[in-house]
Write a protein that binds this DNA or RNA. Sequence first.
DNA 1: ATATTTTAGTGAACAGTGTTTACTTTTTGA
DNA 2: TCAAAAAGTAAACACTGTTCACTAAAATAT
Lengths: 217, 217
Amino acid sequence: MTVTVSSPAERRRNKIRARILSAAERVFAREGAEGLSIRRLAENIDYSPAAIYKYFKSKDELVDELKETFFELILENVNRIADTSTPFAERSRDCVATYVQIATDKPYHYAAAFAGESATQAPVDGEPGFAQSKKGQAFMVLSGMISEGVEIGAFRADIDPTLAAKSIWASMHGLAMMIAHIPTYPAFKADQAIMTRNDFILYHADQVIRGLEAHHG
Amino acid sequence: MTVTVSSPAERRRNKIRARILSAAERVFAREGAEGLSIRRLAENIDYSPAAIYKYFKSKDELVDELKETFFELILENVNRIADTSTPFAERSRDCVATYVQIATDKPYHYAAAFAGESATQAPVDGEPGFAQSKKGQAFMVLSGMISEGVEIGAFRADIDPTLAAKSIWASMHGLAMMIAHIPTYPAFKADQAIMTRNDFILYHADQVIRGLEAHHG
DNA sequence: ATATTTTAGTGAACAGTGTTTACTTTTTGA
DNA sequence: TCAAAAAGTAAACACTGTTCACTAAAATAT
């Protein structure tokens, strides 16, 4: 195992890069991609706008790095739930709910992560590199969990885990996007709320999982 | 019934407004909001950029009008299916599928219609004006259909149609967004396609409806 | 028909954006 | 110590949405 020695220069460079990313992250979380401008970012870290381009070759590349970090966060959280020993029914529901809740916490990140589908063409299932990407890994956690459900008889036997995972992901994605884009979702004016957002997420997760189940009465 | 008489001036004005919108529609369908610029639009219809502002008070307002027309299209199509006399099982599935297919046909429209959730704050369920908006009407078609399903015993008796409709819509929305943002969704490299896009839409619609059903085995 | 007022349309500018280029300063490695 | 490489910058380019002062034309009132 070769250890990559990092020169002081290299470390200094990485530090500044990280400072840029952290400043970008801060602005992005509050105001989204619209509010994030190179000039503003430069001012924030006390550099000239052109300086940013010594560290990132474009704004898109910078934002893509924020997205990848965000998917890392999703993956970590979903994985943490998936590795739990709680009963399958709960566990699968919690996975779905957790995914959506993270989108709730960082709506701008979530919306951006899918909008435009990363300017530098992210790999999609079937392409090389998908399995390596954080998004790809998250997908595999999901399809793995569906496989488990089929094996233990909780889900219908004729289910193709990959196909079902795509469908389930779409359903999670939908709620995540709704929440990301509509501040008051699931609506109901403040004073006539029938259900809290979190309860609705669980409701939706239930609904989605139920579509896979073998029986219920 | 009072007939609103339109002066020649008014008609001429509406005609030009329509010309602007139609040019905008053309550009928008091909390249989305990014490609639509006031200057380009002005050149397209042979006016100065500033002239546009005599007909629309902002670009957002112009785009919002495109969105509303788009929702009209969705509503028309979904309504057409909903009024069919085909068996309930098929009919409900087709409604979901149709919704998604329209998003497939006009991905930019669909993505824009939800992204930013209309700059001029569209009414959300619970607010006045929602029931009048095209989006609100589409929602009511959906929840009405769910009510029917509960009544005839196809869906679980404990289902709250409004709540379920929100969940179902989120699931449709997710697939629609996936398709709108990812050109190759549901992925699979061209030569290893396991399932066509349309088949996958039906598969997803099935899955979604199944989550509501009373029994299956 | 004439005078007045409203509307249609324009060119130029403002304030922003991402990005590139030529240039200077600093840091690094031999 | 000195040449080479990297860091950082000011100024410009080509865009963007939008506003403002202005002219030309049509609509309205007298």
